[in-house]
Every structure is written in C-alpha cells, then in structure tokens.
Nucleic acid binder design. Structure first.
Lengths: 200, 200
DNA sequence: GTCTATAAATGGATAGAC
DNA sequence: GTCTATCCATTTATAGAC
C-alpha cells in the first residue's frame, strides 16, 4: 500500500466520522506522519480527495450491479433459513463492508448540504440494491416460490428491514463488530416474520 | 423572537446542514447581521449552543412520550385508510416537523463521531417512537383488531416503513415540501400492503 | 445587549531544497 | 516523493467602549 492509497484510506476514515469540512489537511497527514506538502504532490487540493472518493462510489455502484446479477439469478428453491441467510449476507458483506460502510457514512454527512452526495447516497443505499431485489422477487413470484404480490413492494419491505437495522446498529456505533452481530440476529428475526407472510 | 432564540434557530439550521464543526461563529452571526462578540454574550462558547440543542432533543423526547400516550390510546376501530392516515400524520408531523427534522439531521451528522449524539439520534428516531407503536399494536391485538403477532415485530415493521421513507425522501432533500409529498404517497402504499397482511 | 478592535490558534496552500 | 519554511485567510474567543 503506497502513500497515495494510504492518503485515500485515512481521508475516507476521517471524512466518514467527522465530515469533509471538519477534517483538516493537517489531520490527514498527521495520521500518516506526512507533511502537508506531500499530500499536495498526490492531490491538487483537499477537494480533489473528496472528488476521488465520490468516483469510487460511482464505480462501486456499477461493479455491484454486475455482481448481484450473477449471484442472485440462480435461486431455485427457498426456505426461511435461506431467506434470512441471504439477508444477513447482504447486510454483513454489502452494507457493513468496511469500504462501503465508510463511504455510506461519509455520504450520509455530506448529503445534508450537497445534492450530489445525496444522489450518490440514495444510489448506493437504496436504488441499486432495490433494482436487484426487485429482479429476485419478480423471478421468485414467476416460479411460484412466493405469493403473487407487487415485486417492488416486496423489495422495499425486504430492503427496509436491512437498511433500518444498518442505521440502528452500525452507523454511528463505535463498536462496529458488536453492531454487526446484533444486526444479524435482528435481521434473522425480522426476515423470518416477513417470509412467513409471503411464502406460498 | 429575541436574538437568543434567533441564534439558536440559525445555529440549528446551519448545524443540520453542514454539521457543527463546519459552521463558524461568523456564519451564525453573519446570518443575523450580528457581531461575533454578541453571540458570546448569550453563550459561553460555540460548544454551548450544541449542548443547548442536545438538551432540546432530550426535552422533545420526553414531551413526545406523553403526547403520543394520549393520542393513540383511544383507537377503537381501524381500517386501511385510517392506518395509512395515522402513519402519514406520524411522518409529516413528527419526523418532518421543522424542528424535529433539523434536530435529526444535526444528530445524524454528529453521531458519526459522537456517541452521545448517536444515543440521542437512536432515541428520537427509533426508541421512543417504537415504545409508542408497541403499545398501540399490543392494544390492537388485545381488541382483536389485527392478527395475533408479536407487537414488537409489528412496531418495527410499521416504523421501518416510515423511517425509510423519511431517509429516502426528506433527509438530504433540498426540496423538503416535495419530499414530504412523495413520502406521504409512498407511505400510503406501503402501509396499506402492511395492513393487508395483519388485519383479521 | 451590541459594538470595535485585537489576540492567538488553526486552516489551506505554495516555493524550493533534497 | 517527501521535506523545511513560509504565506495568508479564517477561526474562536476576549477586552473594553457605548
């Protein structure tokens, strides 16, 4: 990991906690024992780091769209356990993934004053995942694995369970690992109840 | 509205958008055409404004606990329309209330670095409302108005619909009124589907 | 209760040596 | 690619006049 990568990593870490404006170039460099002028070799200015991280969000959303496509489309049968397991995986390995989680934290701060950040937040948090859930529920309904209900409603309800748990147990929690653990068990309980209502 | 109240109002407005650290004493006073020294007559320092706003959150949570108690406990019959209407009211007049909304925005920024803000966020956003929803669903189940399901699960699902809509359409939206409008119609649709699953 | 003036610290950013 | 040294704007906060 070279110093440019370190700079990006530390910046994301600080931005995701305190927000872009509250983090100084000194803070970023201090965390790496670098002088400020070294940062300006890698980035034109402080803003350029934020722009770089925003681009990472766009790339991530695009790459995830593909990954979900191949992962979900093969579901053939389904059970309560499986349903809960997939939701937990979604929670733990998408939303709670260290990089995705920090990007979401950062965006959830910046979105309050920056419409562009708000767009990106909505995409990574809801729009892209909803697209994927939609597909899956539509397929499941076609295969008569679940009741015939509007797929978009099911997707919203399903994803709402996961994102709410993410907001309650992970975002803002100083003990992330503990939050993921609690979150997983709450998801299991809520998704089980959800599946009970939609299974054939 | 005297100048202390104005200072609090403007501070909340700016903190809720940019976050506490990103707002300067100059910004606050500039918005009111006041000199910085005037602020220091009313508040010991910048931090004291934040502390004051945090206390407002505590008071609000306490006062809301009482208000909900009296408003909800009288429900005797229930319909899809009523169910959706109550949820919309909850959304529009609790979460989207100008002051509550701005406090939540502020806390949703500060919580990323401040555990105390996180506690307050969870209380105003979830814990207190969940307590109230819990009571209502328990009562409704007792009166055989809905299926016999665990009240806490129902409360979580019900509130999850509202808070998700709030996050998607209001927080970070530069056109709040439009967001509330969209949010209300989405809530109507989702709560109707929810009620269909739990009614007797 | 608000003003002017000012102190002292912290912020982003650049020039030039190595 | 990183360092020293430095510049200048902005920030929080105080003292004292009105």
């Amino acid at each position: 990991m070279n110093n440019k990568e370190n700079l990006i990593d530390v910046s994301l870490d600080l931005f995701s906690k305190r927000g872009f404006s509250a983090v100084s170039v000194r803070d970023i460099c201090g965390a790496l024992n670098l002088k400020e002028s070294a940062l300006y070799y890698h980035f034109k200015n402080k803003e350029a780091i934020l722009t770089y991280l925003y681009q990472q969000v766009d790339q991530l959303v695009d790459s995830m769209r593909e990954r979900f496509d191949s992962a979900f489309s093969i579901a053939k049968k389904v059970s309560t356990k499986e349903m809960a397991g997939v939701a937990q995986g979604f929670f733990a390995h998408y939303y709670c993934d260290k990089n995705i989680r920090r990007l979401i934290c950062m965006l959830s701060i910046e979105r309050m004053s920056d419409p562009i950040a708000n767009d990106k937040y909505l995409k990574i948090m809801y729009e892209m995942p909803l697209e994927q859930c939609n597909k899956v529920f539509r397929q499941m309904a076609e295969r008569k694995l679940i009741k015939d209900m509007p797929a978009d409603l099911l997707a919203q309800e399903y994803l709402g369970i996961i994102t709410t748990v993410f907001d309650r147990h992970v975002l803002g929690n100083s003990d992330i690992d503990q939050g993921i653990l609690e979150g997983c068990s709450e998801i299991a309980r809520n998704i089980s109840a959800f599946y009970k209502e939609i299974r054939v």
